[in-house]
Design a protein around this nucleic acid. Sequence first.
DNA 1: CTGTTTTGTGACTTTAAAAGTAACAAAATC
DNA 2: GATTTTGTTACTTTTAAAGTCACAAAACAG
Lengths: 146, 146
Amino acid sequence: MRTDSRLPRVLHVLLHLDQTEDPVTSDQIGKMLNTNPSLVRRTMAGLRDAGFVGATKGHGGGWVLSRSLDSISLAEVYAALGSPQLFAVGQSTDAPSCLLEQAANLATSSALEAARETFQEKLGQVTVADLVRPHAQVIRQHQETL
Amino acid sequence: MRTDSRLPRVLHVLLHLDQTEDPVTSDQIGKMLNTNPSLVRRTMAGLRDAGFVGATKGHGGGWVLSRSLDSISLAEVYAALGSPQLFAVGQSTDAPSCLLEQAANLATSSALEAARETFQEKLGQVTVADLVRPHAQVIRQHQETL
DNA sequence: CTGTTTTGTGACTTTAAAAGTAACAAAATC
DNA sequence: GATTTTGTTACTTTTAAAGTCACAAAACAG
């Protein structure tokens, strides 16, 4: 498949929404993301369902933040997107009968699961608001290690 | 793209090769992996170039191990495959001019890079031989934490 | 030497999931 | 009533791996 760019894209959108009071239309967002409004609506649907943004129809409608960005972690954003498949690498067969294949699959998936945990941890340590506070993210992560 | 299953597949093959003295043909391996010999040859090419296996042509030819499996880490196997793309998730644009997009990309790639490091560490801690020594992998990883 | 086995390799098609596109009903505002 | 905008469905395109086909070259068997 193509590279899934939904996470950085919606983060980008959230940061922009935080910079204005007015609703931003899917059309405007589409121009920001260099794509079309239908895809924007589809991609943003998860964030709407999660209560992070609201969408209103008609004249003067569009997308607005409904929660403060410092109350939303990147992990929540990722989850709101439906926790898309993280890895391009995976197991061979799902439930192989060959013991050696099972061992190969187990080793692969163990490493991947460890990587997924790290990914989730990292996302959990950062709020969307942190992204525009240079150094804040670094400090925050440093504190975690103390 | 499809899920990349080369890592578990070649691990599976290496474990099988370790169980016999005789060369194993791409055709036989293809049946093991439920695929065809051409794909086997293409996939195994990296391991051959890395010196982990040797391939001989003609009657009685095929693939044989040329190094002991306890001398090969999973990380080396992954590298021999050309370190295939690990993540299905990626950045939006490569070099965006928008600062907010840069921030979104940086946050995404930071989490991914941390995950990649974990993945590589895990692979580096385990040899192919470990895979068929039940519990050995667990013990080995536990020792790392001491 | 001839025929068979097997690898190495190039060229192509298929697959799967996201991206991208188009269209339109429904809702909200003007 | 006209316009704007979302929500949603259906469809096409993209991308890289998987899968397939074909064949030259090498190695071996007789």
